[in-house]
């Protein structure tokens, strides 16, 4: 069931990540993932990165995972991804 923020976002045509404070993921194949609006890093290993977000924990699994860029609101992870999932 849609929440009030989601309905507003749909009606106004505004990005949901802006109104709902949810992460926005931009994935380039299985090589690069750009995450905006994240909360923080929970775990960082070459095969697994756990990222905290408003929607729960985002788990990225793969090989040779590297944080290429990290900022307060966005981060860029590169490597060879095998699995991306939410642990809600």
């Amino acid at each position: 069931m849609k929440g009030i923020y989601e309905i507003i976002a749909d009606k106004w045509g505004v990005g949901k990540e802006i109104i709902m404070d949810i992460p926005k993921l931009t994935i380039a194949g299985n090589r690069e993932i750009y995450i905006e609006n994240y909360k923080g890093i929970l775990r960082y290993e070459p095969e697994e990165v756990w990222i905290s977000s408003a929607m729960g924990t985002l788990i990225i699994k793969g090989a040779e995972l590297k944080i290429k860029y990290i900022g307060l609101e966005s981060l860029l992870i590169s490597g060879v991804f095998s699995e991306i999932k939410y642990n809600i």
């Binding site: 909360k39 923080g40 590297k66 944080i67």
Partner: peptide
């Protein structure tokens, strides 16, 4: 809590980069 170290640094405006995992931490 190495991951928390990174998060706090970012929140305090400490510019960090080239984050790589190592055997002990990062």
């Amino acid at each position: 809590e190495t991951a928390r170290f990174v998060n706090i640094c970012l929140r305090r405006g400490i510019d960090i980069g080239n984050v790589l995992p190592t055997e002990k931490g990062m």
